[in-house]
Computed example of a mutant assay.
Amino acid sequence: MPLMAPTVADYEASADLATLLVRTAEGDAFSVPAEKLRLSCKCAHCTRARFDECFPQRFPGIAITEIGDLGYGLNISFSDGHNKGIYPKPYLLSLAAADNPAS
């Protein structure tokens, strides 16, 4: 039987908005802290800020304020006003796997 990559079946922000909770079609559940998501944004603005060496090293207290499903990925908005990042679902799962190695 061929190995299949897990697929995102459902997602939500935690009650305190500090974590993205992700469930896969295979029944696994993962979590990714909002700060890790914000630090992992690959939008043009954040990429440029990294290139210019002015991207913050931390986002303490950052919260998820909105999640938009684009089919192939999630557009996540944060409490600092940033809302340009699109997180492809395989990328989200890779971020989640790094934080949840036993899952």
Rank of each mutant, 00 (worst) to 15 (best):
M1W: 05
P2T: 07
P6E: 15
V8Q: 10
A9F: 11
A9D: 11
A9H: 12
A9C: 06
D10I: 00
D10E: 13
D10T: 06
A13F: 00
S14F: 03
S14C: 10
S14R: 05
A15D: 15
D16P: 04
D16W: 01
L17R: 14
A18I: 00
L20E: 05
L21T: 13
V22H: 08
V22Y: 09
R23S: 13
T24A: 04
T24D: 13
E26F: 01
D28E: 15
A29L: 13
F30P: 12
F30V: 13
S31V: 13
V32N: 12
P33A: 14
P33H: 07
A34E: 00
A34R: 00
E35W: 00
L37W: 07
R38K: 06
C41H: 02
K42Q: 14
C43G: 13
C43R: 11
C43N: 14
A44W: 08
H45R: 08
H45G: 05
C46G: 06
C46K: 02
R50W: 07
C54T: 15
C54Q: 14
C54G: 08
F55A: 15
Q57E: 13
F59L: 04
I62Y: 03
I62F: 04
I62A: 05
I62L: 06
A63E: 10
I64A: 04
I64M: 02
T65L: 00
E66Q: 12
I67Q: 10
I67M: 13
L70C: 07
G71Q: 06
G71R: 01
Y72W: 11
G73A: 05
L74Q: 11
N75R: 15
N75K: 15
N75W: 05
S77M: 10
F78M: 12
F78Y: 15
S79G: 12
D80H: 01
D80F: 02
H82G: 01
N83G: 15
K84I: 05
G85M: 04
I86T: 14
Y87P: 09
Y87S: 09
Y87I: 03
P88E: 06
K89Q: 06
K89D: 04
K89S: 06
Y91G: 02
L92W: 01
L93V: 08
S94M: 03
S94P: 00
S94Y: 02
L95E: 09
A96P: 08
A97G: 06
N100K: 03
N100F: 03
N100R: 04
P101A: 07
P101G: 10
